[in-house]
Amino acid sequence: MITIDFERCKGCRLCTEVCPKKIISVDYEKHNLKGYYTAVCTDNEQCISCSMCAVMCPDYAITVER
């Protein structure tokens, strides 16, 4: 499973594109203090902990657990 740091994410979407399970998307409902709409994991059940999203994240905002 992954956890995305809400305040550190800038919503660049690089993680959403690299995710093989396509379970990350940007949540346009709420923004963080800096005003960014951030990435969220929509279905952590399906996460295979491949860490690709975290490797690609320029804001080291993603923690991966297995």
Binding site: K10, S51, P58, V64
Partner: peptide
């Protein structure tokens, strides 16, 4: 935990633009 922010990086948001690969 199998992947997280490295210890030698401060726990702050960087000033880089979204998607800038400096952070990587």
């Amino acid at each position: 935990v199998i992947f997280q922010k490295p210890k030698s990086l401060a726990d702050v948001q960087t000033h880089y633009c979204p998607g800038c690969t400096h952070g990587i």
